[in-house]
């Protein structure tokens, strides 16, 4: 296959950026999108140009590193896939493909297609955990978890933290990411003691990072490589309302973070 790429190039966080055109030639339709990028980069290197920086690691859709806006779709046109799982057979020969970084204020561009997603780490640090210091746990089977709850928790816990939800959201909101973690932990009996404190802290951090608010366009659900549902956002809001209705003492009582 032969393709034309229009790729965002930006030398550093403060540098100005622009879209630059490249040709990708003789690409196998069986190659993954990132393998196509490898080929382009090898050619750039040998021509003495700087290759295109992009985040990637596991290349099997689980680490959440890859993060490209491909032709106006987060992670490309296919649903339920990360960029690394996108294969060139999904494109027409001769196509022009736009490749851009996630465009969210809370994810500043580091270089070319790489962005800084540490905002997500800080949202987790604000409360996306169960306080359980090593060594104090009771026998695992003492906590019964209904299969339905466990399955639902797993659906949300599948989040890979790639940031596609915020990238796809017309409002630049990371509600789906935040709600997925809140839902994962709130489904489980172990997550109850800190449940309401968690939702308040995580939402506050989400806002402090500069993400926008959710208006339920639903773009995030279709962009999510793990197909996490916007139902999680309803659950987050529900918990948020309960938390608001509770006394402050009750919320704080859950854990010591």
């Amino acid at each position: 296959m032969n393709l034309t790429l229009r790729v965002w190039r930006q030398a550093g966080p403060k540098a100005p950026g622009k879209m630059v055109e490249y040709k990708a030639t003789e690409i196998s339709p069986e190659a993954s999108f990132l393998e196509m990028m490898d080929v382009v980069n090898d050619e750039l290197t040998l021509k003495g140009e700087e290759p295109i920086a992009f985040d990637h690691d596991c290349r099997e859709g689980i680490c959440g590193s890859c993060s490209m806006m491909i032709d106006g779709h987060a992670h490309g046109p296919n649903q339920g896939t990360a960029t690394c799982q996108l294969h060139m057979r999904s494109f027409e020969d001769g196509a022009t493909i736009f490749v851009e970084p996630w465009r969210v204020r809370a994810f500043p561009v580091v270089k070319d297609l790489c962005v800084d997603r540490s905002a997500f780490d800080r949202i987790i640090a604000a409360g996306g955990f169960i306080t359980a210091a090593t060594g104090g746990a009771q026998d695992a089977n003492n906590v019964l978890v209904p299969k339905v709850a466990s399955d639902l928790a797993m659906d949300s816990a599948a989040c890979i933290g790639c940031g596609a939800c915020a990238a796809a959201c017309p409002n630049g909101s990371a509600s789906l990411f935040t709600a997925a973690k809140i839902t994962h932990l709130a489904q489980l009996p172990q997550g109850q003691p800190e449940r309401y404190r968690r939702v308040v802290e995580m939402v506050a951090q989400h806002d402090a990072e500069g993400f926008g608010g959710c208006t339920l366009h639903g773009e995030c659900q279709l962009a999510c490589p793990k197909e996490i549902s916007i139902d999680t956002i309803s659950r987050m809001n529900r918990d948020y309302m309960v938390a608001a209705a509770m006394s402050q003492e009750e919320k704080v009582g859950g854990g010591t973070g």
Binding site: W8, D71, E100, S173, G210, L222
Partner: peptide, 16 residues
């Protein structure tokens, strides 16, 4: 929401 995306996409295709 506007502030959350200071730089727009060159190409964006909404799906949902």
């Amino acid at each position: 929401d506007r502030a959350a995306r200071p730089v727009p996409y060159a190409k964006r295709d909404l799906q949902a």
